[in-house]
């Protein structure tokens, strides 16, 4: 589905070059859900931005659906994203002078969906996220949590081959987080490929695989195992353990 080979990003601000990502290899299979974790400054946001073409790479390769993507021009990336990639940013990036409904429908329309189809998809997504009554509001009238959910709806409007997200629950309280988790779980079960950066253990625990970055490099890449309860143990045991 998506593949990064020896991906490097070095920022050159002022005099000294600052390496953010230092040679990352990653393969994500179709339908897989991968969570990327790591301390701030570990390069995880930069990495996922590069995967979506929102940040240029210094060196290395990105392959999406069997086609090389890192050599694309900015407009080439824009076309690719419109067709295949949904992106949820940490700070929403909604179009402020358009309604919530138009924000969500726009990517589907740009991607070539009929107005009827775009509207139906928007209605479905907003309902799933508990936002049907906010459809005609402007983004500025919404709380941070609501804006983040609209951003997720927008990213999924196109039914993209790949969903990329950078801290999609970073601004949500626990109830809003639950709505986002439910929708992520649902689209994942329907076969959505997801790569997301998160520090939220509830989000990461839904992934098939967790990749940990430290200082711009992968230090761990492995599936999340099922808990082996001791014989006769109940779910209550974990609560006791943490209590």
């Amino acid at each position: 589905m998506i593949r990064a080979i020896g991906l490097v990003k070095i920022y050159q601000t002022g005099g000294l070059p600052v390496p953010a990502v230092r040679g990352v290899d990653l393969v994500v299979e179709p339908g897989e859900f991968v969570a990327i974790m790591g301390p701030s400054g570990s390069g995880k946001s930069t990495f996922v931005h590069m995967l979506g073409g929102l940040e240029t790479r210094t060196s290395g390769e990105i392959w999406l659906d069997g086609k090389r993507a890192d050599t694309l021009s900015e407009s080439g990336w824009a076309v690719l994203r419109r067709q295949k990639v949904g992106f949820v940013f940490q700070f929403f990036n909604l179009v402020t002078n358009m309604t919530v409904a138009d924000n969500v429908e726009l990517p589907a329309l740009l991607g070539g969906a009929s107005p009827k189809h775009a509207r139906e998809r928007r209605e479905y997504l907003l309902a799933e996220l508990g936002l049907e009554e906010r459809a005609s509001a402007a983004p500025g009238q919404l709380s941070g949590g609501e804006q983040q959910r609209v951003a997720l709806a927008r990213a999924l409007a196109n039914q993209p081959r790949l969903l990329l997200a950078d801290e999609p629950t970073g601004n949500l309280d626990s109830r809003n987080t639950r709505d986002v988790l439910k929708l992520l779980g649902k689209v994942h079960r329907q076969g959505q490929t997801i790569v997301l950066v998160t520090h939220d253990a509830r989000v990461a625990s839904m992934a098939d695989r967790v990749v940990s970055l430290l200082d711009g490099q992968i230090v761990d890449d492995a599936p999340i195992a099922r808990i082996q309860r001791r014989p006769g143990g109940t779910a209550g045991d974990i609560v006791e353990l943490r209590g």
């Binding site: 988790l181 253990a201 230090v219 999340i224 779910a235 609560v239």
Partner: peptide, 16 residues
């Protein structure tokens, strides 16, 4: 690394 994955397993269990 092992402990992180274990915590995430526990979290999944709590979610269920």
């Amino acid at each position: 690394n092992r402990q992180r994955r274990h915590y995430l397993s526990l979290m999944r269990d709590l979610d269920e």
